[in-house]
Design a protein around this nucleic acid. Structure first.
Length: 85
DNA sequence: ATAATGACGTGAT
DNA sequence: AATCACGCCATTA
């Protein structure tokens, strides 16, 4: 858990509230445009509250999964942050 | 060190 | 629209 993981965390932690990013984008920003799969894996094991992993969604617009309450909680949080009801 | 896994993505069926 | 299969990569077992 070094370079990539660290970069991913950094990028994700920089996602502003009320905004979302796709795994692909994160991977690209992290320097590994094709490692979107790994991004998910890393985030899935990431329990750091400093990293708003719930801001990361799929490219197809799907919510994706979440290790802290499931997609439900994730969608809920996003809905909340975005100020939408 | 090697094999399996998964919070993905895209194209094909 | 839904499902299937394959690719891609770091992490984990």
């Amino acid at each position: 858990m070094n370079d990539f993981t660290n970069r991913v965390r950094e990028v994700v932690s920089r996602i502003p509230r009320g905004k979302t990013m796709t795994y692909k984008e994160v991977a690209r920003q992290a320097g590994r445009p094709l490692a979107h799969r790994a991004v998910g894996n890393i985030l899935s094991k990431n329990y750091d509250s400093k990293v708003p992993c719930h801001r990361v969604i799929r490219s197809d617009g799907q919510i994706g999964n979440y290790n802290r309450g499931g997609a439900e909680q994730k969608a809920k949080l996003l809905r909340l942050e975005q100020g939408l009801k």
